[in-house]
């Protein structure tokens, strides 16, 4: 299945590069975390966009301030029931201010999409076409959320405050 963003298929300009393959000079390569750590100076000096692929056991705090060197960071869901990448995503977005594309790979299913969006993912490489087919209905499924965290929708608390300011509409 091709790359999905905002409920539509989009072109994927990035290429995953194996650890033993050369990194293209014109950029657009996604390299592994271990390779980036090993070749950090050479890769940082590359005058081209660079992407990073993390295993869900990799420690994102090691990237820290370097996050925005990357145009894309790909996080992995080896099984949909393994939720470690949700924490990695929030840290990258909320703690380290990552502005690039945050891509979910692996077992990316429609019923986890809302969790992924709320944690900061904005691009998806799903295993089949169901994510695309059900995108609209799952994104619209819940009107608001309780937690005041990096979110794509209003929080319940926010709606309460808004309602309190507009008593007539409550």
């Amino acid at each position: 299945m091709p790359l999905v963003r905002d409920g539509a298929i989009v072109a994927d300009p990035w290429i995953s590069v194996a650890d033993d393959a050369p990194v293209p000079r014109d950029g657009g390569a996604i390299v592994s975390f271990s390779r980036w750590k090993a070749e950090r100076e050479a890769l940082s000096g590359l005058n081209a966009p660079l992407g990073l692929a993390l295993a869900n056991t990799d420690d994102v705090t090691e990237i820290g301030a370097a996050t925005n060197r990357f145009g894309v960071i790909a996080l992995s869901f080896p099984k949909f029931s393994d939720g470690r990448a949700y924490s990695q995503a929030r840290l990258l977005r909320e703690r380290y201010g990552f502005k690039g594309e945050l891509r979910a790979t692996g077992a990316v299913l429609p019923d986890q999409l809302v969790h992924m969006l709320r944690c900061g993912f904005d691009a998806f490489l799903p295993p089949d076409d169901r994510l695309l087919r059900y995108w609209g209905r799952v994104v619209a499924s819940l009107p608001a959320f309780y937690q005041p965290i990096g979110t794509v929708k209003p929080t319940v608390e926010g709606l309460r405050e808004a309602a309190a300011k507009r008593p007539a509409a409550a």
Binding site: D82, G83, H115, L142, Y146, Q147, I149, V156
Partner: peptide, 11 residues
């Protein structure tokens, strides 16, 4: 309220 449909801690 905090834990309901928590996006990070549901799996």
């Amino acid at each position: 309220q905090w834990s309901t449909a928590h996006p990070e801690f549901s799996f």
